[in-house]
């Protein structure tokens, strides 16, 4: 990892971020992703207007840790909510209400549950942003007009120049072999 990354430049002198190619159908994209995975690339990504079914396996992605984090945060939230109610009802403001016991847990169940749900929801959304390094309002790919059509109906694979296996010609040949079209170098 300590090896310095090789910098490629375009004819205009821009630093190359990666090479992108378009694909016509989800099926072409899927097969191309499997081949790029098998060719051993690691810093690359597949862009599609919707999550293509099974693409994580085709790309060889590991399962995300987001559910684990969300589960821990959600349960912690519920625990904190329970402790807070216990403190308020028995210590902070112990008030006799209709002769009910101070430390009965049953009345705390609804609020404990709601706070757990609240923490889970925030963690799911904010965790999704954190794991995806969002918000990121600037990205080299977003400068490409062709790339902006991914949000409509295009399918794109981009292999990044920072990938140790990246080679401008060989990478392009690979994408060409996989029926990719409209190759383009993306500049940083």
């Amino acid at each position: 990892m300590s090896k310095a990354r090789k910098i490629y430049k375009t004819e205009d002198g821009g630093v190359v971020y990666g090479v992108m190619a378009e694909f016509d159908t989800p099926a072409d994209l899927f097969h191309a992703a499997e081949m790029v995975r098998d060719a051993g690339y690691s810093r690359w990504d597949v862009y599609s207007p919707f999550p293509v079914h099974g693409m994580e396996e085709a790309m060889g992605l590991k399962a995300t840790k987001l559910p684990l984090l969300t589960g821990i945060v959600g349960l912690s939230g519920a625990g904190l909510g329970y402790l807070f109610q216990w403190w308020v009802t028995t210590k902070g403001y112990a008030t006799v209400v209709q002769g009910k016991p101070f430390d009965a847990f049953q009345p705390w169940v609804p609020v404990t549950f709601e706070i757990g749900v609240l923490f889970t929801a925030f963690c799911a959304l904010l965790g999704m942003f954190a794991f995806n390094a969002l918000p990121m309002w600037y990205h080299p790919l977003l400068k490409k007009d062709r790339f902006l059509r991914v949000s409509d109906d295009r399918f794109v694979i981009c292999i990044e120049a920072s990938d140790p296996k990246f080679d401008p010609d060989r990478t392009r040949e690979l994408l060409e072999k996989l029926h990719g079209r409209h190759f383009d170098f993306v500049e940083e």
């Binding site: 990504d45 597949v46 862009y47 999550p51 992605l61 987001l66 969002l134 600037y138 990205h139 977003l142």
Partner: peptide
Amino acid sequence: GWRFSTRHWQN
């Protein structure tokens, strides 16, 4: 800054 990346779609 959503860019329709599969790595993002997964999360």
